[in-house]
Amino acid sequence: MKFVKEIELGDPSANHQNFIDLKLKMLCCRYWLLDLWDCHEMVFPFWRLYWNKNTGGQLIHQDTVFEMDPNYIYIIPPFTSFSSLYTKNHIHTEGIHVSGKQLNSNHNEADLENMFLIHFFAHFNLGVPFDSVYPGILKIELTDYLKDRLNYLTDRLKIENKNFKLTFNLKLQAFIKEALTNIGPELWKTINIDERVLKVIRYIEVNIDKKLSNTNMSSLVNMAPNSFARLFKDEMNVTLHQFVQNRKIAKSCELFEHTNKSIEDVAFNLGFSDRYHFSRVFKSVTGLTPASYKSGKYT
């Protein structure tokens, strides 16, 4: 057999192809029985996907109320301010209050639909620049394909919700990616952002543990700080300072999810002057204190 060295990567075509690198990273995925879902003005630095098997759930974004329909899934991009409630048990008008329990194979869901909100959710990130799309709540109709995947995922979560096998991971990622294909093109404008802005965003991601100044970042693209700040705001619909804060808080959430680092360690690792400064920024972005977030009492 003769090895053809001239062909790169086994591709016999001379036509160059450009692919978009989507870095889907799962943070959590659960199937719950909720009896309380009073959450007000939540803001989180990751994507959220919700589906309720029965009616009674509401999502609120600005002046729009979504009555959650079992025939639809709801996707919420990072840094969207929204509220949720279970209409059959609505107590609190502020703060974040959730109670319920994990569904398991011993539960008969048909017997529980009148007492609980049967609730599936997944949290994930997509990487730069797709975690910086425009905020909102996206309502997506369940296709037969999505229903089939959802049935598999919820059935498996009732049996195992900690150590997931490869098949579950692949089907979960396929479910999320298929759902994302149903989002309109207006949401993905960030893939066409100015190359200078994208260069700085990539620099921020690599150097998220450092103190990042406007002067330093604008010099990367040979622009004056004020001119680059205006360009960044025009392209990203958020100030450069707020973007850096958002990305630092997003990284802190990831550290809280996947490490045992203390709040002080996370603050230090992300370049904050002290825990108190970090806590103020964290609460201004998410509406929660770092301690509340670490406790995991949210969906």
Rank of each mutant, 00 (worst) to 15 (best):
residue 279 S to N: 12
residue 218 S to G: 03
residue 220 L to F: 02
residue 205 E to L: 06
residue 236 M to F: 10
residue 243 F to L: 15
residue 201 I to V: 03
residue 259 T to A: 03
residue 260 N to P: 00
residue 235 E to F: 08
residue 241 H to K: 15
residue 278 F to T: 03
residue 199 K to M: 10
residue 257 E to T: 00
residue 261 K to H: 13
residue 265 D to P: 01
residue 212 L to P: 15
residue 249 I to L: 06
residue 234 D to P: 05
residue 210 K to A: 10
residue 242 Q to A: 11
residue 259 T to V: 08
residue 251 K to G: 06
residue 253 C to D: 06
residue 231 L to R: 12
residue 250 A to E: 12
residue 280 R to G: 07
residue 207 N to G: 07
residue 237 N to M: 14
residue 260 N to F: 11
residue 207 N to D: 02
residue 253 C to N: 09
residue 203 Y to S: 00
residue 219 S to E: 13
residue 217 M to K: 01
residue 213 S to H: 04
residue 212 L to C: 11
residue 223 M to A: 05
residue 279 S to L: 08
residue 239 T to D: 09
residue 248 K to T: 04
residue 227 S to H: 06
residue 244 V to Y: 02
residue 247 R to M: 04
residue 222 N to V: 04
residue 201 I to S: 06
residue 252 S to K: 13
residue 275 R to Q: 14
residue 272 F to K: 05
residue 233 K to G: 03
residue 230 R to K: 15
residue 253 C to Q: 03
residue 256 F to D: 15
residue 239 T to A: 10
residue 270 L to G: 06
residue 277 H to P: 00
residue 228 F to E: 01
residue 223 M to P: 08
residue 266 V to C: 07
residue 261 K to F: 14
residue 243 F to D: 08
residue 217 M to G: 01
residue 262 S to P: 01
residue 272 F to T: 01
residue 269 N to Q: 12
residue 239 T to S: 15
residue 269 N to H: 11
residue 251 K to T: 05
residue 246 N to C: 06
residue 224 A to V: 11
residue 202 R to Q: 11
residue 263 I to C: 08
residue 207 N to W: 06
residue 278 F to M: 12
residue 279 S to R: 14
residue 210 K to P: 08
residue 200 V to N: 01
residue 221 V to H: 05
residue 218 S to K: 00
residue 255 L to P: 02
